[in-house]
Amino acid sequence: MKCAFLDVDTVGDVDFSQIQQVTGDFARYTKAEFEQNSEAILADIEVIITNKVVINEDRLKLAPNLKLICVAATGYNIIDLTACEKHQVVVCNVTNYATNTVAQHVFALLLSWANQIKQYHQASVDGTWQRSQFFCLLDFPIFELAGKTLGIIGYGASGQKVAEIAKAFGMKVLIAERENATDLRPDRTEYKTVLAQADIISLHCPLTAENANFINTEFFQQLKPSCILVNTARGGLINEEALYNALSKQQIQAALLDGLSVEPAPHEHILIKNKLPNLIITPHTAWASQEARQVLIDEIANNIQAFIANEPRNRIGLEP
């Protein structure tokens, strides 16, 4: 099948041999190359792989032979599913490929903040340590994760992995029930109770139209001032102006974020330009270990192979 990856530069140094073997005709384009030659590329394509390139009605009209879209991600908001249904195009995504690396990133952020790694490194090399009359510095408070209460919102694969690691640190884990749920599941804690008791809140829910910006002013008012917010999910879950206000007014201790609502974030973004001391941001890299990226590519190959065998897997949007 004639297959093209439309933004191969988004996945970096991975082995594409499984996709090449399954399709037999596999072309790779950077996002810029695709945007410059989209009509020609789409004209006779049968399988599209896309991470962030939007596939909408206009582009589907340019691809009369298209049969399958493989999203190189779990989220598929870049795909117009209604248009795909109209054009009888199957859409598949990949789930749970970055469970370990996302959980690892959560604790990389937490430990960096808890142990003040950046500040103590700087103090070690800028002369501060050398001027000390003692063997160590105590300039920046350090705290232990043991004994802290971790509230998890979103309990899929990554949320479960974070809970497992947290327990190894000796943390108490509370799994939040849905905010307006009438029945409490056995392993869940009432939503408002989690917010009130948590020392750390970690987000692991997908971004939907219903939960966009649900981390807002009202949310922050329910947290302890010592609470830390960790987000390795989607930036759009957070109302960033409300977060800025909460951080600048010390309504919460800190926010540790992987990505923002707009990526890459512009220089004038409220959380970028103000350089808050209680904020750490990484550029949407929680998913991006080499191992996780390779699993992603290999799972895409499996999706294509299953489609060719008329047994689609990880299918979204269209009913089998």
Rank of each mutant, 00 (worst) to 15 (best):
T282N: 02
N65D: 15
A163S: 05
G259Q: 08
E33D: 09
L68V: 05
L42K: 06
D199G: 09
A255K: 05
G236P: 08
L195Q: 03
V54A: 15
N302E: 12
D25W: 01
L296K: 01
L276D: 06
L247F: 13
I304S: 03
N213C: 14
T10F: 04
C3Y: 01
S17W: 00
H267A: 13
K31N: 13
L109A: 03
I297L: 01
G154Y: 04
K167L: 08
S112I: 05
S158V: 15
A292P: 02
T82V: 15
V102I: 12
G154M: 02
W113H: 08
N278H: 00
F107I: 01
Q21P: 09
Q253F: 11
G147W: 04
A163C: 03
D258L: 12
V53D: 06
T208M: 09
D25F: 02
I78N: 10
V11Q: 03
G127N: 04
L223N: 08
Q104T: 09
T193N: 14
A163R: 07
A4F: 00
R313N: 14
T50N: 11
S112V: 03
R234V: 06
V94S: 03
M171P: 04
V11C: 02
D126R: 07
S124M: 07
Q88G: 08
E35A: 14
A72M: 11
K31Y: 11
C92S: 10
Q290R: 15
V162P: 00
T23K: 03
A73F: 05
I215Y: 10
S226Q: 11
V230F: 08
Q197N: 12
A98R: 00
L110I: 00
L110M: 02
V22S: 00
E177T: 06
Q160A: 07
A72G: 12
V53A: 10
G235V: 05
C136E: 15
K249H: 15
V22G: 02
G235R: 08
A73G: 07
K61W: 02
P266E: 03
I117P: 05
T50A: 13
I48V: 13
N37G: 13
N274D: 01
L271F: 00
R234G: 12
L109E: 00
I165Q: 04
D139A: 13
V295T: 09
V262Y: 08
R234H: 09
K31Q: 15
A103Q: 01
A265E: 10
A40I: 07
P320W: 12
A301H: 04
G127D: 03
S158F: 09
L223M: 11
T95A: 13
L279W: 05
G156F: 00
T232H: 07
L229N: 11
L276H: 06
F34Y: 08
C205V: 15
E85V: 09
F134E: 13
L256K: 06
R59Q: 11
V162R: 03
R293Q: 07
H105F: 09
V94M: 02
A72H: 06
T82Q: 15
Y244D: 05
E164I: 09
E291G: 12
A43Q: 15
N37S: 15
A40M: 05
G317F: 03
H121N: 14
D7L: 02
A32N: 10
Q116D: 07
A43M: 14
Q36T: 12
Q197Y: 12
L138P: 13
A63N: 01
I117W: 05
D199L: 11
N239Q: 14
N37V: 14
S124A: 11
I117A: 07
I308C: 07
E240I: 01
A286H: 00
Q250C: 14
Q251K: 15
